[in-house]
Write a protein that binds this DNA or RNA. Sequence first.
DNA 1: ACGAATTGCGCC
DNA 2: AGGGCGCAATTCGT
Length: 570
Amino acid sequence: MHIAVSAHTGGAALGADADGAVTLTELDEAGRLLGPPFTVSRDDFPQAVVQREKHSPRWVWDDTRRWYPVLLEAEVEVERCVDLRLCHTILRNAAATAESELARAAPSSWDAPSAWAEQGETDTLFDLGLQRGHDDEAQADPVEEFRLQRAAVAGSADPNRLSLLLAAESAGSLVAIEMQFAGLPWDASRHNELLVELLGERPPLGQRPARMHELLLEIRAALDDPAANPDSPVELVKSLRRAGIDVSSTNRWELARHEHPAIEPLLTYKKLSRLLTANGWNWIDTWVDGGRFRPVYVPGGVVTGRWAADGGGALQLPHQVRGAVIADPGWTFVVADAAQLEPRILTAMSGDRAMAAAGRDRDLYDGIVASGAVDTRAHAKVGMLGAMYGGTTGESGRMLPRLARAYPDAIRFVEEAARLGESGAVVSTHLGRTSPRPSGEWLELQDDARQEGASEVLRTRAKTARRSWGRFTRNFVVQGTAAEWALAWMAGLRRRLALLGPELPLRERPHLVFFLHDEIVVHTPVGLADAVAAEVRTAADEAGTILFGAVPVQFPVSVAIVDSYDKAKG
DNA sequence: ACGAATTGCGCC
DNA sequence: AGGGCGCAATTCGT
């Protein structure tokens, strides 16, 4: 029998056995049973959830993707939940819970990836969750797991932060399913127009669009090579070298360094080729259905805590096609992005007061210029990005000493994260998500390089690997904490949006339709757009306070009300 | 011939 | 010697 569970006052919950019956167990916050489990049929399950929702339970279940789509199909929304699998992953790896029973136990089905993720095809997603048994999960008792998780959090040095992280992660799992359910409004005919403007008419299978064909002829003429093939990197390098262009690869950066009549058409060709293959007509055929693009979001899909997406390249939608994202008649979009999120996160984490002042009531990079640390906004930006990514070369590297002088706390913070990574240690985000340990291979390499008589080659390799891991941990703390801020922002906004349309189903009131790391899109009736914009800002302020308390760091968002996505300055 | 790895590039 | 991804096409390796 599968048991999903709900906890908290008034809560109840569920699980499905082979016949699809669902068992609900009422729990308190520690996971203690408040009464005997009871069973409802699969058909009655959504209604049972509706009854319980009146008391705002927190549903505790193994996997939001398993349960929530069925509920949304039945127009049942859940206010909050615990996604045990996502939370387990966090607690299993967190330094703060390393001594817990949960973390010391042998790996179990809770450590496996979601068994419900792969069935994300649009035709099956929303009806099979309850019916399909899963062998591993048959053994996995969510009540017991919930208790282990609560105990692990309670036993950690800072239970509040971890609790917050688990709540945010779980809220994100609800948003992910809701956004897939609602879909991103997508106008396929507008998308086609955009493609025709850039590429020419859709060509027959296997042929190049007209514009690309013209460019191909230009390239061949310029290279004096009638067989030059820009689609093949290997052949293209040979063609370029024959024409006297000294390249070792065909990537854009390297090509752009050379002056030659073939370069410009080649770069244009590659740009269009990318558009055609990644977001061309085939993409429309595959991913747009009924005026909606429904990517499968994968909360926690990135080690840092960022989301990933499965199918359609949802998190890489090029600006070229964003004009096809058009609001329904009578509706509009509220598009918001957090301004300079990562450096502001670093400011709050490191307590750098000078940087906090630089970012107060203005663009942070402008503020850095105004402080006299660097001379242009572009320098400020590239310098800060370099500091957070571990860049050492070029402009970025040159800016670092100035930034370190002006903002010692912030720079020291990321340098320390890098140093820890290089030494093989783990680092953690503000709320306690911990970086993975370096691989056995990495550790061995470091070990071997330290041996007496290790070759110079080996020592160099070890150093390269060490630096590389340091760049990863350096970035992990910032990117991961930014992801936490974004989750808090989105969770708060989700709650606030629900209040703008009480009693209305998700798709008939303002709802989130897109999320991109530090940017959100809300689809809303036109009349509520201003109210939504206000909630977006309030939720952003709240997210900063929730994570960091009363620190003097602002998290401003730029908000645009637009009827198509390309009109938001991105 | 086929799956794995690489290349290149889109997003943040 | 720049962090994290996903995806399509090409190229490599067996």
